[in-house]
Write a protein that binds this DNA or RNA. Structure first.
Lengths: 201, 201
DNA sequence: TATTATTCTGAACATTGTTCAGTTGATTGC
DNA sequence: GCAATCAACTGAACAATGTTCAGAATAATA
């Protein structure tokens, strides 16, 4: 059993996040429980509740982590492409790849929390904002003549769309038998949307 | 207390679905419980478990209902428009309207079940397919020259996109302030995508 | 009316989130 | 080095969850 002060508060927090992340990745969000997290970090439930107010706090912080990792992945993917349009496609494929490889952890991002009353913490919404910033930057390059509002709207439309396709595909609700792959549907969305952006000004 | 054979098995099933739907609409999917459903229909848990194998069965059947209702709504919205393109916009707005008015019930559609091992029942996937059929029919009118595969892909891309935007917006992850702007983002997606379809053949 | 078949109940079990009185180990003051 | 103080940590307790199933209640049948 763990002794007192073996770890600092921040270390404990990280251990809890690691444990929770592991469980979500391995068994899915619904299999997560306070006792499992605690026991995996070598402590008891009580200790966990000194680190997080509710279990929801824990989950939302794991989600913030996931989002940060996803952001970094996208940034890398969109780093060196011949042109901006191909960057968008590269980012899209990176997104799909991430969602496929870490399906459970990724799906926790939207499976969790429509509990309207509790609002998302700042560093979570910041991650979201930074994700849209990336897409905006790419779209800015694709159509430099458009206004900032147009770009903002377009980024949310396009990226919300990519996310939506992934959600449906990975929960078997895209009726995808007649279509070859998720990638193709995503390419259709991105390619056609970008073509529309070009044709429409 | 309810006596035996007051209701047929099918009546009981419907009562259970009604009760569950009511609870989800009023308090959200997470607030749903077997005992609450049972007590709302004037029976006990045991009885509920003669009607449904798991609680998940119940939920998925409520979802099928919701999807049928949504389908009907879309069909009505896309019925009489001046042209096909405006039909797509009308359907999109109808979708957003439905999702806004019945947020909790609608969000149960995707909040529930990425439990990979259990697959969705037929009459649920049928509802999904029929939804895409509608969108395909509209897109067919917009660009008659395209192949069936193209149309199928486009329908999933576009409609997955619409759904994705709604999911993010109604769970505060679209980084927008008001619900009015959700419509704007959706219009951007649909308008630009359709423009792209037109420009690209 | 007696027997059989079904419906329905509700107690039981394991597991969940969450709390908190009490223990145990570290820190401080002398 | 010892006593007093303080914070970390435990684990029992509570209400609520999904799920099961022996038995009570009632209908159908003979």
């Amino acid at each position: 059993m763990a002794r007192r002060n073996d770890h600092s508060r921040e270390e404990l927090r990280q251990m809890a996040l690691d444990a929770a992340q592991f469980i979500i990745e391995a068994q899915g969000l619904t299999a997560l429980s306070a006792r499992k997290v605690a026991s995996r970090m070598g402590y008891t439930v009580g200790t966990l509740y000194r680190l997080f107010e509710h279990l929801d706090d824990l989950i939302v912080q794991v989600n913030a982590r996931t989002l940060a990792e996803l952001n970094a992945t996208l940034e890398r993917a969109a780093a060196d492409c011949p042109d901006a349009e191909r960057c968008v496609h590269a980012a899209t494929h990176a997104y799909i790849d991430f969602a496929s490889r870490h399906t459970r952890r990724w799906s926790a991002l939207y499976e969790h929390g429509i509990e309207a009353d509790i609002q998302l913490p700042r560093h979570f919404t910041e991650q979201i904002a930074s994700m849209y910033d990336q897409v905006e930057a790419l779209l800015q390059s694709v159509t430099p003549q458009r206004s900032a509002e147009d770009i903002a709207r377009a980024a949310r439309a396009l990226w919300g769309g990519v996310q939506g396709i992934c959600v449906l595909a990975l929960s078997d609700k895209l009726d995808i038998d007649r279509i070859e792959t998720l990638s193709e549907v995503a390419d259709s969305l991105v390619g056609t949307y970008l073509a529309g952006l070009g044709a429409r000004h």
